[in-house]
Amino acid sequence: MLSWLDANALSMLNGVALAAVLFLIAVGLSLVFGTMDVLNLAHGAVSLTGAYIGVAFLERDTTIPLFVTAVLAAAAFGMVAGVVLAAMTSSVGDHLRQALLTLGVALIAGDVLREIFGADVESVSAPASLAGAVSVFGRPYPLYRLVIIGISAAIAVVLYIVLERTRVGALVRATVADRAMVEAIGVRTNLVLGGVFGAGAALAAIGGLLAAPILGAQPGLDDTVLLLALVVVVVGGLGSLRGALVGALLVGQVQTLGVALASEYASFLLFAAMAIVLLTRPRGLLPAKTGAHG
């Protein structure tokens, strides 16, 4: 048992790091679906744009102030993109037409990004002071990944507090539950929903940027990210913050610990795991309590 732990502890820790990135990217997808009932397939493109913003800001030497600036820029871009997408999808009712619309947007965005940044693989370096390795379980482990875990955990806590403990959060939850009632007390729900969409997209862009030193930025990454985020969201349970967190943790472990233990079957693990979860718990592991859909 101890030797097993010794051999795999690093994989488990690394699974948490992967989960941290996945959570940031997926939580927006989940919330938008939960609050607005919109299936946003342009989410991966937003995330990839975040990564490219990193490329634009951080050429070779990356300092922490510059990195923070890039994060803020990515967040601002995501916010705008989210509001635009919210406006575009507001008149489109059913999921399949939303899929057609948002995938169309994603295809256009992919082409524009390729036009601006070229087809080459681009890379972003982590801030120099975070680029090294630290010793974990007696082995070198990249410090930057530990930082990502920290940032992601902090964002998760803030999100939880905002959604569960503040007036804004109460408004969002109320809008999900009964839009007409919220309108009746004089709140413009469109603003609430646009805000959620914007915040979700901003998180996706930040996630894409934070992941860029690990995943890079290149054409096609948007699809990969979108698929992973979709898996995280449905496995965890649509529309719930905790669901996205649990989904991300599970997918992270499957992709690292699972791959370490059964590397011959590595390419099947992710989708096999998703199929098993969905067939046993169709609503995901931790579905939203306000079940507007199911």
């Binding site: 299936l39 999921h95 979709l230 898996v231 449905v234 649509l238 390419s267 099947f268 989708f271 096999a272 998703m274 199929a275 969905l278 067939l279 169709p282 609503r283 859909h293 199911g294």
Partner: peptide
Amino acid sequence: AVAVRTSGIVFLMVTLAIGELVHRFADS
């Protein structure tokens, strides 16, 4: 036999999994 027990977006994702699993099987 197992997939149609689900519906809606979950069915969509289960069928995505079926497609991807067959794809990856063919790949190797």
